[in-house]
Amino acid sequence: MGIQEQYRNEAAELLSSGAVKLVIGYGEGSTSDRRRPVFIRSADETARLVLDANCIANLSGYLVPEGLLSDGKSVAVFLKPDGIRSVNILAAEAQVNPDQVVILGFDIDGGQASPLPGRKATDFAPLIESQKSTGLSTELQQEADQLELMSATDRFEYWNQQFSKCIKCYACRQVCPMCYCRRCIVDVNQPQWVNTSSHTLGNFEWNIVRAFHLAGRCVACGGCDRACPVNIPLRLINHRMSKEALDAFDHFAGESADQKPVLATFRQDDPETFIL
């Protein structure tokens, strides 16, 4: 029995036993290698579920909409390790009750989806712990290092060019499970903090603000990077923020549901080498 069959059966069992009211998973997309989220409410619909190496989107964001979990019933969701970390963050930020989330965990390795045992976010703690000790992506680090080697002027020019492409579609915000604010800072117009037109200054500000709000929260699922229609390398800026949180505060986003958000806590001996 392949993993897809196994997970379809599990989803069917969860639904028919009444353990969950909804399964959020992947279904066929518009092309053969695309997957789109599907929302399954009864056991006989579970044949629509697909699970393979193309299931890369982080579905945890679908847990957040208002009212979904307010009835106290549980929801099952297909998640890769990054998604499990997102659930931990959402729980730490009081956006979801982790007890109401049943995780159908899997990982993609060598072009194949493989099952991850566990049901609750806490079951995956050893896995996340090992991810933390492995550290952040070395590939991204190499890309970021290239930028860090440039002079500030060149780096500004680089991002200037990247951000000048931005059309302010906010796809990055829409796709991000961490962007759940009901009123985003860019939608605030009294005062208007961020220029909303898609001129380069406004784009610059928007992308800086978004990266800052994701500092210590981004799990590098790559959703924004894939969603961006003009291919701004958002992964790099997010990676740089994750690195800062890890290096300065030993904060690996989404370690557990009890982890305090990095900017909502402090230690008295936090580094402060730059303060005059």
């Binding site: 930028l147 500004f156 991002w159 800026i237």
Partner: peptide
């Protein structure tokens, strides 16, 4: 760190 990374 963010400002520095974006070239400010």
């Amino acid at each position: 760190a963010l400002l520095s990374f974006t070239g400010i």
